[in-house]
Design a protein around this nucleic acid. Structure first.
Lengths: 121, 121
DNA sequence: CGGGATCCCCGCGGATACTG
DNA sequence: CAGTATCCGCGGGGATCCCG
């Protein structure tokens, strides 16, 4: 009777066995991809907020904290007044850059395709 | 009638000028990446549901519909009983495959790094 | 300047039942 | 087999206020 598993039930050991899903989990979050993108270069917090249009402080902080926890982003605090914090990519974050660049390239071409199709319709 | 000028108005499509964000919008959705991944090969609906552990029929359908709308996935219906539907990648979907493969590769290495760090702590 | 703490909302995802 | 239709809940994201 306990042999049948319900939808949504996944054996613990099989969670994240798929590398693609593991990656998905890291970049899941409305702003994470664009944040990582702008972190090609070291950025200060306020700078980052200006670069990512539409995000609020609170959410930007939250997403950065998660990226930190996932060891994608490094946070450097300068003990001075007024406060200064710099965000940069970790090693793991840097190895992800080629993917982000590919996504950028793909996004450009995808946009062109979509627009040409929209003109037809 | 008073035609409102374009001053101050931002055309919808210029909001997403950033190609990376455009890509983000396409793959946003809990299951889309792993779905696309399994669509390297043409798959039937039920097959897809077995390959993506944890997703329900309804949600799987919804995500596939969105991918269809974004011209990433093609849906082929065979008019027969019992019903048979095959999903495959469109041209746009196929051009996205290299990125998914990179994500898979990255996910493997990322997993190793995380596990080695977890052992230390 | 770079946050933390709260409150709130809505929309995504999940469960179940039904269908051609 | 491959879906719809419907209800529901939860949590991610947003707004606002406060703070060192």
């Amino acid at each position: 009777m306990s042999r049948t598993s319900f939808q949504g039930e996944i054996p613990e050991e099989q969670i994240d066995v798929c590398p693609v899903t593991a990656t998905q989990n890291v970049i899941a979050g409305k702003w994470k991809i664009i944040i990582l993108w702008h972190l090609r270069e070291t950025r200060r917090f306020g700078e980052l907020q200006r670069l990512v249009p539409g995000v609020s402080k609170g959410i930007l902080t939250a997403q950065l904290r998660e990226l930190e926890k996932d060891q994608m982003v490094h946070r450097k605090v300068y003990q001075e007044v007024p406060p200064k914090v710099e965000y940069s990519l970790t090693d793991a974050g840097r190895t992800f850059m080629p993917i982000l660049e590919s996504m950028g390239e793909w996004g450009k071409k995808y946009d062109l395709v979509k627009k040409s199709r929209d003109e037809i319709e």
